[in-house]
Protein backbone atom coordinates (compact mmCIF):
# COMPACT_ATOMS: atom_id res chain seq x y z
CA UNK A 1 0.00 0.00 0.00
CA UNK A 2 2.76 2.41 0.84
CA UNK A 3 4.37 1.73 -2.52
CA UNK A 4 1.26 2.55 -4.49
CA UNK A 5 0.68 5.80 -2.68
CA UNK A 6 4.33 6.55 -3.26
CA UNK A 7 3.64 6.10 -6.94
CA UNK A 8 0.72 8.49 -6.73
CA UNK A 9 2.87 11.06 -4.99
CA UNK A 10 5.50 10.80 -7.62
CA UNK A 11 3.26 10.31 -10.61
CA UNK A 12 4.12 13.56 -12.42
CA UNK A 13 7.91 13.33 -11.91
CA UNK A 14 10.03 10.55 -13.25
CA UNK A 15 11.52 8.74 -10.29
CA UNK A 16 15.12 8.20 -11.12
CA UNK A 17 15.86 5.79 -8.33
CA UNK A 18 15.74 2.48 -10.18
CA UNK A 19 15.24 0.38 -7.07
CA UNK A 20 12.32 2.39 -5.74
CA UNK A 21 10.75 2.48 -9.15
CA UNK A 22 11.24 -1.18 -9.80
CA UNK A 23 9.75 -2.00 -6.43
CA UNK A 24 6.78 0.26 -6.95
CA UNK A 25 6.21 -1.22 -10.37
CA UNK A 26 5.97 -4.73 -9.13
CA UNK A 27 3.33 -3.72 -6.59
CA UNK A 28 1.39 -1.76 -9.17
CA UNK A 29 1.44 -4.50 -11.74
CA UNK A 30 0.19 -6.99 -9.22
CA UNK A 31 -2.61 -4.64 -8.22
CA UNK A 32 -3.82 -3.64 -11.63
CA UNK A 33 -3.16 -6.75 -13.67
CA UNK A 34 -2.51 -4.43 -16.55
CA UNK A 35 0.18 -6.83 -17.69
CA UNK A 36 0.52 -10.54 -17.03
CA UNK A 37 1.07 -10.95 -13.31
CA UNK A 38 4.68 -11.16 -12.19
CA UNK A 39 5.26 -13.26 -9.11
CA UNK A 40 6.73 -11.46 -6.17
CA UNK A 41 10.16 -13.06 -6.37
CA UNK A 42 10.57 -12.20 -10.01
CA UNK A 43 11.60 -8.66 -9.19
CA UNK A 44 13.27 -6.83 -12.08
CA UNK A 45 17.07 -6.68 -11.81
CA UNK A 46 18.21 -3.65 -9.94
CA UNK A 47 21.76 -3.23 -11.15
CA UNK A 48 22.48 -0.09 -13.18
CA UNK A 49 24.27 -2.13 -15.85
CA UNK A 50 21.08 -3.96 -16.70
CA UNK A 51 19.08 -0.78 -16.62
CA UNK A 52 21.47 0.75 -19.13
CA UNK A 53 20.57 -2.03 -21.55
CA UNK A 54 16.90 -1.13 -21.26
CA UNK A 55 14.91 -0.88 -24.52
CA UNK A 56 14.41 2.27 -26.56
CA UNK A 57 11.69 3.74 -24.38
CA UNK A 58 11.32 4.21 -20.66
CA UNK A 59 8.93 1.83 -18.96
CA UNK A 60 5.46 3.00 -18.25
CA UNK A 61 2.52 1.42 -16.50
CA UNK A 62 0.11 2.56 -19.17
CA UNK A 63 -0.87 -0.40 -21.26
CA UNK A 64 -1.35 -0.67 -24.94
CA UNK A 65 1.95 0.63 -26.33
CA UNK A 66 2.65 -2.35 -28.48
CA UNK A 67 -0.88 -2.60 -29.76
CA UNK A 68 -1.37 1.07 -30.56
CA UNK A 69 2.04 1.62 -32.05
CA UNK A 70 1.71 -1.53 -34.10
CA UNK A 71 -1.70 -0.53 -35.43
CA UNK A 72 -0.49 2.99 -36.16
CA UNK A 73 2.52 1.78 -38.09
CA UNK A 74 0.48 -0.80 -39.97
CA UNK A 75 -2.20 1.68 -41.02
CA UNK A 76 0.38 4.33 -41.85
CA UNK A 77 2.41 1.84 -43.84
CA UNK A 78 -0.52 0.53 -45.83
CA UNK A 79 -2.32 3.74 -46.61
CA UNK A 80 0.48 6.29 -46.81
CA UNK A 81 3.89 4.72 -47.21
CA UNK A 82 3.15 1.92 -49.64
CA UNK A 83 1.56 4.12 -52.31
CA UNK A 84 4.28 6.75 -51.90
CA UNK A 85 6.94 4.08 -52.25
CA UNK A 86 5.20 2.95 -55.43
CA UNK A 87 5.44 6.48 -56.74
CA UNK A 88 9.13 6.86 -56.06
CA UNK A 89 9.92 3.39 -57.29
CA UNK A 90 8.11 4.23 -60.51
CA UNK A 91 9.96 7.52 -60.77
CA UNK A 92 13.27 5.84 -60.10
CA UNK A 93 12.60 3.21 -62.72
CA UNK A 94 12.09 5.85 -65.36
CA UNK A 95 14.80 6.31 -67.86
CA UNK A 96 16.78 9.24 -66.46
CA UNK A 97 17.15 10.84 -69.85
CA UNK A 98 13.40 10.70 -70.48
CA UNK A 99 12.71 11.95 -66.97
CA UNK A 100 14.82 15.06 -67.45
CA UNK A 101 13.44 15.54 -70.94
CA UNK A 102 9.88 15.41 -69.61
CA UNK A 103 10.47 17.72 -66.69
CA UNK A 104 12.35 20.25 -68.77
CA UNK A 105 9.87 20.28 -71.63
CA UNK A 106 8.31 23.67 -72.31
CA UNK A 107 4.81 22.68 -71.32
CA UNK A 108 5.84 21.20 -67.99
CA UNK A 109 8.10 24.12 -67.18
CA UNK A 110 5.33 26.57 -67.97
CA UNK A 111 2.90 24.65 -65.77
CA UNK A 112 5.37 24.45 -62.88
CA UNK A 113 6.13 28.12 -63.28
CA UNK A 114 2.45 29.03 -63.12
CA UNK A 115 1.71 26.77 -60.17
CA UNK A 116 4.63 27.91 -58.07
CA UNK A 117 4.55 31.53 -59.21
CA UNK A 118 0.86 32.05 -58.57
CA UNK A 119 1.18 30.23 -55.25
CA UNK A 120 4.05 32.51 -54.24
CA UNK A 121 2.08 35.62 -55.18
CA UNK A 122 -1.02 34.37 -53.38
CA UNK A 123 1.04 33.50 -50.32
CA UNK A 124 2.51 36.98 -50.21
CA UNK A 125 -0.87 38.63 -50.69
CA UNK A 126 -2.26 36.51 -47.89
CA UNK A 127 0.73 37.30 -45.69
CA UNK A 128 -0.15 40.98 -45.92
CA UNK A 129 -3.93 40.77 -45.75
CA UNK A 130 -3.91 37.79 -43.41
CA UNK A 131 -1.79 39.68 -40.90
CA UNK A 132 -4.11 42.62 -41.18
CA UNK A 133 -7.13 40.41 -40.66
CA UNK A 134 -5.58 38.66 -37.68
CA UNK A 135 -4.68 42.02 -36.13
CA UNK A 136 -8.15 43.42 -36.60
CA UNK A 137 -9.81 40.29 -35.25
CA UNK A 138 -7.62 40.01 -32.17
CA UNK A 139 -7.15 43.63 -31.23
CA UNK A 140 -10.36 45.36 -32.12
CA UNK A 141 -13.95 44.87 -31.13
CA UNK A 142 -16.63 45.55 -33.67
CA UNK A 143 -20.09 44.21 -34.41
CA UNK A 144 -19.89 40.93 -36.27
CA UNK A 145 -16.40 40.13 -35.10
CA UNK A 146 -17.22 36.54 -34.16
CA UNK A 147 -19.02 36.02 -37.43
CA UNK A 148 -16.04 37.24 -39.41
CA UNK A 149 -13.79 34.97 -37.39
CA UNK A 150 -15.98 31.99 -38.23
CA UNK A 151 -16.06 33.01 -41.89
CA UNK A 152 -12.27 32.91 -42.11
CA UNK A 153 -12.51 29.13 -42.04
CA UNK A 154 -14.87 28.92 -45.02
CA UNK A 155 -12.14 28.28 -47.59
CA UNK A 156 -10.92 25.47 -45.38
CA UNK A 157 -14.30 23.79 -45.07
CA UNK A 158 -15.78 24.48 -48.50
CA UNK A 159 -15.23 21.71 -51.07
CA UNK A 160 -12.77 22.85 -53.70
CA UNK A 161 -15.07 22.13 -56.65
CA UNK A 162 -17.77 24.35 -55.15
CA UNK A 163 -15.24 27.11 -54.58
CA UNK A 164 -14.05 26.71 -58.15
CA UNK A 165 -17.40 27.12 -59.84
CA UNK A 166 -18.45 29.91 -57.48
CA UNK A 167 -15.30 31.92 -58.19
CA UNK A 168 -15.69 31.35 -61.92
CA UNK A 169 -19.29 32.52 -61.88
CA UNK A 170 -18.27 35.54 -59.83
CA UNK A 171 -15.36 36.67 -62.00
CA UNK A 172 -16.65 35.70 -65.44
CA UNK A 173 -17.31 38.58 -67.73
CA UNK A 174 -20.98 38.63 -66.89
CA UNK A 175 -20.39 37.93 -63.21
CA UNK A 176 -21.01 40.21 -60.27
CA UNK A 177 -17.35 41.16 -59.96
CA UNK A 178 -16.22 40.23 -63.42
CA UNK A 179 -18.47 42.73 -65.16
CA UNK A 180 -17.18 45.86 -63.39
CA UNK A 181 -13.63 44.59 -63.73
CA UNK A 182 -14.14 43.97 -67.44
CA UNK A 183 -15.26 47.57 -67.77
CA UNK A 184 -11.93 48.53 -66.29
CA UNK A 185 -10.24 46.28 -68.82
CA UNK A 186 -9.19 43.62 -66.31
CA UNK A 187 -9.99 40.08 -67.31
CA UNK A 188 -9.88 37.67 -64.38
CA UNK A 189 -11.62 34.45 -65.34
CA UNK A 190 -9.74 32.10 -67.68
CA UNK A 191 -6.45 33.90 -67.19
CA UNK A 192 -3.50 33.44 -64.82
CA UNK A 193 -5.01 36.27 -62.77
CA UNK A 194 -7.95 33.97 -62.10
CA UNK A 195 -5.54 31.34 -60.84
CA UNK A 196 -4.10 33.93 -58.47
CA UNK A 197 -7.54 34.90 -57.14
CA UNK A 198 -8.52 31.28 -56.56
CA UNK A 199 -5.28 30.59 -54.71
CA UNK A 200 -5.75 33.66 -52.51
CA UNK A 201 -9.18 32.33 -51.60
CA UNK A 202 -8.13 28.86 -50.58
CA UNK A 203 -4.96 29.76 -48.71
CA UNK A 204 -6.50 32.66 -46.77
CA UNK A 205 -7.14 30.83 -43.49
CA UNK A 206 -3.62 29.52 -43.08
CA UNK A 207 -1.88 32.82 -42.40
CA UNK A 208 -4.68 34.19 -40.23
CA UNK A 209 -4.93 31.08 -38.07
CA UNK A 210 -1.18 30.84 -37.60
CA UNK A 211 -0.78 34.46 -36.54
CA UNK A 212 -3.84 34.75 -34.30
CA UNK A 213 -2.45 32.78 -31.34
CA UNK A 214 0.80 34.73 -31.38
CA UNK A 215 -1.06 38.01 -31.45
CA UNK A 216 -3.29 36.90 -28.63
CA UNK A 217 -0.30 36.06 -26.51
CA UNK A 218 1.33 39.38 -27.29
CA UNK A 219 0.76 41.37 -24.15
CA UNK A 220 -0.02 45.06 -24.58
CA UNK A 221 2.63 45.86 -21.98
CA UNK A 222 5.34 45.42 -24.57
CA UNK A 223 3.77 48.02 -26.83
CA UNK A 224 3.11 50.31 -23.91
CA UNK A 225 6.73 50.01 -22.84
CA UNK A 226 7.87 50.91 -26.31
CA UNK A 227 5.56 53.92 -26.34
CA UNK A 228 6.85 54.97 -22.94
CA UNK A 229 10.38 54.79 -24.24
CA UNK A 230 9.46 57.18 -27.02
CA UNK A 231 8.78 55.00 -30.03
CA UNK A 232 6.24 56.19 -32.53
CA UNK A 233 3.46 53.83 -33.54
CA UNK A 234 5.18 52.93 -36.75
CA UNK A 235 8.48 52.31 -34.97
CA UNK A 236 6.73 50.09 -32.47
CA UNK A 237 5.21 48.07 -35.26
CA UNK A 238 8.43 47.78 -37.16
CA UNK A 239 10.80 47.01 -34.32
CA UNK A 240 8.67 45.28 -31.72
CA UNK A 241 5.65 43.63 -33.23
CA UNK A 242 6.92 42.42 -36.58
CA UNK A 243 9.97 40.61 -35.17
CA UNK A 244 7.73 38.79 -32.71
CA UNK A 245 5.26 37.89 -35.43
CA UNK A 246 7.79 36.97 -38.04
CA UNK A 247 8.23 33.25 -37.26
CA UNK A 248 4.49 32.66 -37.21
CA UNK A 249 4.10 34.73 -40.34
CA UNK A 250 6.75 32.71 -42.11
CA UNK A 251 5.12 29.46 -41.01
CA UNK A 252 1.72 30.66 -42.16
CA UNK A 253 3.13 31.74 -45.48
CA UNK A 254 4.81 28.38 -45.99
CA UNK A 255 1.58 26.52 -45.17
CA UNK A 256 -0.40 28.75 -47.51
CA UNK A 257 2.19 28.31 -50.24
CA UNK A 258 2.26 24.53 -49.88
CA UNK A 259 -1.52 24.32 -50.09
CA UNK A 260 -1.71 26.66 -53.05
CA UNK A 261 0.91 24.82 -55.08
CA UNK A 262 -1.02 21.56 -55.03
CA UNK A 263 -4.47 23.04 -55.41
CA UNK A 264 -6.58 21.51 -58.16
CA UNK A 265 -10.34 21.75 -57.71
CA UNK A 266 -10.71 25.47 -57.09
CA UNK A 267 -8.37 26.39 -59.89
CA UNK A 268 -9.30 24.31 -62.90
CA UNK A 269 -12.65 25.98 -63.41
CA UNK A 270 -11.38 29.54 -63.35
CA UNK A 271 -8.04 28.94 -64.99
CA UNK A 272 -8.84 28.46 -68.64
CA UNK A 273 -6.37 25.59 -68.80
CA UNK A 274 -4.62 26.62 -71.99
CA UNK A 275 -1.30 24.80 -72.23
CA UNK A 276 1.70 27.10 -71.80
CA UNK A 277 -0.55 29.93 -70.60
CA UNK A 278 -2.93 29.04 -67.83
CA UNK A 279 -2.33 25.36 -67.15
CA UNK A 280 -1.38 24.40 -63.62
CA UNK A 281 0.92 21.50 -62.80
CA UNK A 282 -1.68 19.24 -61.14
CA UNK A 283 -3.87 19.55 -64.21
CA UNK A 284 -0.93 18.55 -66.37
CA UNK A 285 -0.53 15.42 -64.26
CA UNK A 286 -4.19 14.55 -64.75
CA UNK A 287 -3.96 15.11 -68.50
CA UNK A 288 -0.94 12.85 -68.77
CA UNK A 289 -2.73 10.20 -66.72
CA UNK A 290 -5.69 10.33 -69.05
CA UNK A 291 -3.31 9.83 -71.95
CA UNK A 292 -1.93 6.81 -70.06
CA UNK A 293 1.52 8.47 -70.06
CA UNK A 294 2.07 7.16 -66.54
CA UNK A 295 5.80 7.72 -66.73
CA UNK A 296 5.55 11.41 -67.54
CA UNK A 297 2.81 11.95 -64.95
CA UNK A 298 5.04 10.29 -62.38
CA UNK A 299 7.95 12.51 -63.36
CA UNK A 300 6.00 15.73 -62.86
CA UNK A 301 4.49 14.40 -59.65
CA UNK A 302 7.90 13.44 -58.30
CA UNK A 303 9.25 16.93 -58.93
CA UNK A 304 6.24 18.50 -57.22
CA UNK A 305 6.58 16.09 -54.29
CA UNK A 306 10.26 16.83 -53.85
CA UNK A 307 9.51 20.51 -53.63
CA UNK A 308 6.64 19.85 -51.21
CA UNK A 309 8.88 17.71 -48.98
CA UNK A 310 11.47 20.47 -48.98
CA UNK A 311 8.75 22.88 -47.91
CA UNK A 312 7.58 20.60 -45.09
CA UNK A 313 11.15 20.36 -43.86
CA UNK A 314 11.50 24.14 -44.06
CA UNK A 315 8.30 24.61 -42.07
CA UNK A 316 9.50 22.22 -39.39
CA UNK A 317 12.90 23.90 -39.17
CA UNK A 318 11.26 27.33 -39.10
CA UNK A 319 9.02 26.31 -36.26
CA UNK A 320 11.91 24.89 -34.32
CA UNK A 321 13.97 28.03 -34.95
CA UNK A 322 11.15 30.35 -33.98
CA UNK A 323 10.49 28.40 -30.81
CA UNK A 324 14.15 28.58 -29.83
CA UNK A 325 14.25 32.24 -30.76
CA UNK A 326 11.24 32.99 -28.60
CA UNK A 327 12.56 30.98 -25.67
CA UNK A 328 15.77 32.96 -25.70
CA UNK A 329 13.72 36.07 -25.07
Amino acid sequence: MTSSSALLDHAPARVHDPERRAGARVETLALTQASPPISADETPPRSPAVRAAVPWRPRSIIPGFGLTLGLTLAWLGLIVMLPLVALFARAASLDAHRLIETVLSDRVLAALQLSFGAALAAGLANAVFGSLLAWVLVRYRFPGRRLVDALIDVPFALPTAVAGIALTALYAENGWLGAPLADLGIKVAFTPLGVFVALVFISLPFVVRTIEPVLEDLSPEIEEAAACLGASRWQTIRRVIIPILFPALATGFALAFARAVGEYGSVIFIAGNLPMVSEIAPLLIVIKLEEYAYGEATAVAAVMLLISFALLLAINLLQRWSRRHMERR
Binding site: L82, P83, L84, A86, L87, R90, T160, A258, V261, G262, E263, Y264, G265, P282, L283, I285, V286, L289, Y294, A297, T298, A301, M304, L305, S308, F309, L311, L312
Partner: peptide, 14 residues
Amino acid sequence: SVSPVISGLIYVLL
Protein backbone atom coordinates in the same frame (compact mmCIF):
# COMPACT_ATOMS: atom_id res chain seq x y z
CA SER B 1 1.45 18.46 -47.80
CA VAL B 2 0.73 16.34 -50.85
CA SER B 3 -1.36 17.72 -53.68
CA PRO B 4 -4.76 15.98 -53.98
CA VAL B 5 -3.98 15.00 -57.55
CA ILE B 6 -0.79 13.30 -56.44
CA SER B 7 -2.76 11.56 -53.69
CA GLY B 8 -4.90 10.01 -56.40
CA LEU B 9 -1.95 9.35 -58.68
CA ILE B 10 -0.16 7.20 -56.10
CA TYR B 11 -3.15 4.88 -55.87
CA VAL B 12 -3.38 4.65 -59.65
CA LEU B 13 0.30 3.73 -59.70
CA LEU B 14 -0.35 1.05 -57.13
